[in-house]
Design a protein around this nucleic acid. Sequence first.
DNA 1: AACAAAACCAACCGCCCGCCA
DNA 2: CTGGCGGGCGGTTGGTTTTGT
Length: 322
Amino acid sequence: MGRKACCDKSETLKRGKWEVEEDEKLINYINANGEGSWRSLPTNAGLKRCGKSCRLRWINYLKSGLKRGSFTPHEDETIVKFHNTFGNKWSLIASNLPGRTDNEIKNYWNSHLSRRTYLFRSTAVVDSKFIKTHPTKRKKIVTNNNNNNNNEVPAKKKKITSPPPVSDERESNTLHEDSSLSTCSSINTADEFMLDEEMMVWDEHTLMQFHNFLQDHDNGGGGGGGGDVASSCLTPTNDEREKVIVNNNNISDEKLVKFESEEEAETTKTTTMQMQYSCPSPIVIYFDDDEQFRWDFDGGFGGDEVNYPWSETKEEETMFNI
DNA sequence: AACAAAACCAACCGCCCGCCA
DNA sequence: CTGGCGGGCGGTTGGTTTTGT
C-alpha cells in the first residue's frame, strides 16, 4: 500500500541551491548517457540529489536551447493570450514559447502578469480576485482583517486613457494566421476612465462604462477574429460558422461524456455557438511594461490555432449581456 | 543608514497518469 | 486487474534581492 517515495528522505540528500560542480556533473552525465532514468541518475552521476531535483534542474536551467533573461512584449502577449484560453496549463503555454520552461512562465505569470491582468465577468462583482496592487508600484497590502478601518484614506484616482478606434494595422492583423496574438490594443486617445490607483478596483459602473466605450469606439472590423466587442456581436457569416463547427471538434472527450445524449451534445454546441456570437469571452485588462493600458479578449474564431475552451464559455453566458 | 515590507524566483512537494510486469 | 515505477505537472515554499519608509 502506498507508493515508494521518489526520493528517500531518510538519506542525506543535498537540497537547495545547486553548486557549479553539481551542474557540471549533471551536464556531463546527461551528455554521455542521455535524459531519463531520473531515479537512478543521481547515484550514477555521483550526485547527492533527488532524481526529481536533477530532472528539474536539467529541464529548467541546464538544457540547451533555453532562453534566459527578460520576456519580450510579444512573449508577454502570448502568455496572457494562452493563459486566458487554457488557464494554468503552464506546460501547454510553454510549448508555444520556444526556449521558455513551464516553471519560468509560471513564475513570471505569478510575479508579473497576473498582477496586471483583470478578468471581467458578467456580474461585475468586485471580489478579491479583481483586486490587485498596481504592478509597477509597490504598495502595502491592505488586508481583509482591517474591517474596522474607519480612518481608511480614499484611494487616489489614476487617469487611464481610452482605446482608439480600430486601426488599419489592427484590422489587418486580425487576418493574419497568428491572429490570436494580435487582438490586443493600446489605449491612447483622449477619453478617460478613472481607476483606483491604490487598489485598482473596478466597480460595476466602471466595467459598464468600459464596455460601452468599447462598443462606441468599435467599427465592427475584424471579421469575427475577436478583439472587438461589436464584431463578436454580429451574426456570423457562413464562413465563420464553419470555423465554429471546426472548433467544436475541440470539445474534449472529458467534456463530451457529460452529455446525456447526442441531442444534448448538439444542443450544447448550438447554445455555445450562439452565445459565442452574442457575448464576448472574458476581457483581459492589463498594463504592459510601459504602463500602457491594454485589453484583449479571445473571440475564439478568426482561424487562429487556439482551441477555445467551450466548456467554460457557458459559465460566462451573461457577461456584458446588456 | 537601518529596518521592514514586498517582490522575485529557484527549488521543492505531492498528486496524477501512463506504462508495464 | 492490480500495483509499482518513472515522469510530468501545478501549487507552494523559502531564501535572496529590491524597494519603501
